[in-house]
């Protein structure tokens, strides 16, 4: 059985902390790789930069992608992922603060598998992470 990795792309350390906490609270023990921005996320996926030499045959089970990030934003990352043969089929869940319709629409246009808005209430956030993890890490069969 392959190890089911989860790639969390998030520039805000608070959010990283809270996300990890929510995952933990929901007993999701999969390996979580954290990328601080879009560039790092792509480095990881394609084995470049500080992830040079990584075995790129191993791809994350799901990518949690923030949109508003320095250097390269989430929509650009999504575009690159869907443009590359290796990562074209990876499930990407957009996890963002934005409730703007255009972000949501743009994300789905670029091939996001899901779009989740981070609630302010931590309890609700935990609930959302639980459902997300349950679906993408447990129930969903990757191609």
């Amino acid at each position: 059985m392959k190890t089911k990795t989860l790639l969390l792309v998030e520039d805000n350390p608070d959010d990283v902390q809270l996300t990890l906490r929510a995952l933990k609270k929901n007993n999701i023990a999969n390996e979580v790789v954290i990328a601080g921005d879009g560039v790092e996320a792509l480095d990881y996926l394609f084995g470049a930069g500080k992830f040079a030499g990584r075995d790129t045959r191993v791809m994350p089970q799901v990518i949690l992608l923030d949109l508003k990030m320095p250097r390269m934003d989430g929509l650009e990352v999504l575009h690159r992922i869907r443009a590359d043969e290796r990562t074209r089929l990876l499930p990407v869940v957009v996890l963002t603060t934005s409730s703007e319709d255009r972000d949501c629409v743009e994300s789905y246009k670029l091939g996001a598998n899901s779009y989740i808005r981070k609630p302010v209430d931590f309890n609700q956030f935990t609930e959302a992470i639980q459902q997300l993890g349950l679906y993408w890490l447990v129930l969903n069969e990757s191609p």
Binding site: N12, D14, T97, E100, F122
Partner: peptide, 14 residues
């Protein structure tokens, strides 16, 4: 919508 909410989430979460 982005930036004002993010700190609130931290406040609530922590």
């Amino acid at each position: 919508s982005h930036d004002l909410r993010a700190p609130l989430r931290s406040i609530d979460g922590f």
